[in-house]
Design a protein around this nucleic acid. Structure first.
Lengths: 202, 202
DNA sequence: TCAAAAATTGAACACTGTTTAAAATTATTA
DNA sequence: TAATAATTTTAAACAGTGTTCAATTTTTGA
């Protein structure tokens, strides 16, 4: 069945072309301001054609959403070689913040855009779950070394993630204007270091 | 000039009616999904009429944005009677989180919606600035009592705000699904308490 | 009462996501 | 190879969006 095979490859190729165009415009103009017509005309096809390859705009969004997580997880995986769990935890934060700075638009897609509430419970968000589990595991390791004693694992992990996300969210939505003296980058960097020094006493 | 006076009152009245309608729909359907036609038909006027009283949709947004801050500041003002600054700081966090839970839509308007980048630097966002200054002052008071020694005020305040915002942001965008065992409310409450117990050691 | 000013309308413009019948292209079979 | 079937793509249409603007109504001041 060499033809069917090639057919499938062509189909995947087309999907890739659409995603490439979508990524380019999504990450430039944001989710809301990117139209299906924009994406279609980027690859010189008619708007309707996209609907043959993707269910709707939100399916394209979810594809890029997953892409973002894969990118972030790849960055975090590098830290596996850091032996001490607490050192690794601190580095995770730094990498997370760096990721948000370097990939503002992916970050928006991953954590800020109101997702069209689909497949979130079924199969689609496995990769986000995976990231959380990674964090839970890390906290557990720290606790095994006598850190964060008496803290509930899940609440503590949620708090960690929240603090990181808060820093990145304010950055991504430019809500840092009220701290006029400091640059965005410094606020994130040294703001996080403040948090770290709290962690060190816990 | 009693007529001009009444005229002005009528104008303010109309603006109030528009804002009331806008608030109702904004806070029910969110910013993006509320249309000018929705707002107009809510008060039985034509769409174009709104543009006589407000420049555009974003001006209405900014009005409600300010409204939200006034509401939050009113809640926080109650804490002025708490004498001990550190106790007050901890309470500020609890009130902030409670506000986000009770006013999810205001919170979205205030901290999450990508604002059409206007008047943010000029006169419009004084009230947000005021809230930040309040926080900075509070941190200073805590430091005067020997808390958070050696921390930069601004970075530390930014970190505080970030942590609070992170908790509320994940809640508002329903990004808490990955912590399946716990309810949203418990995650926020006990997540924050984890943070507080870190603060207590700093 | 009448002209000037203010307020309101409704149609129009250029967009949006999505659907769908028709057309064009490609594959399969007789 | 010719005819049929399946797949892929298009263009038009639908119902919606924010916004503008000429025309119209309402209100005001002389």
């Amino acid at each position: 069945m060499g033809i069917a095979e090639r057919k499938q490859e062509e189909k995947q190729d087309m999907q890739k072309r659409i995603l490439d165009a979508a990524r380019k415009i999504f990450l430039d103009k944001g989710y809301e301001k990117t139209s299906m017509r924009n994406i279609a005309s980027e690859i010189n096809y008619s708007p309707g054609m996209i609907y043959f390859h993707f269910k709707d705009k939100s399916e394209i969004f979810h594809e890029l959403h997953k892409e973002g997580f894969r990118l972030l997880l790849a960055q975090l995986k590098i830290l596996d070689k850091v032996a001490d769990p607490f050192e690794r935890l601190k580095a995770v934060g730094r990498v997370f913040i760096q990721f948000a700075q370097d990939n503002k638009d992916y970050y928006n897609l991953m954590f800020m855009v109101e997702e069209p509430a689909k497949e979130s419970t079924e199969g689609g968000f496995k990769i986000a779950q995976e990231a959380i589990n990674h964090l839970l595991e890390l906290v557990k390791e720290c606790q095994a070394e006598g850190r964060f004693v008496g803290m509930d694992q899940e609440y503590f992990s949620f708090m960690l993630l929240s603090s990181l996300h808060g820093i990145c969210a304010l950055f991504c939505k430019d809500r840092t204007a009220s701290f006029q003296n400091k640059s965005n980058e410094d606020l994130m960097k040294y703001g996080y270091e403040c948090f770290v020094s709290l962690l060190e006493k816990g």
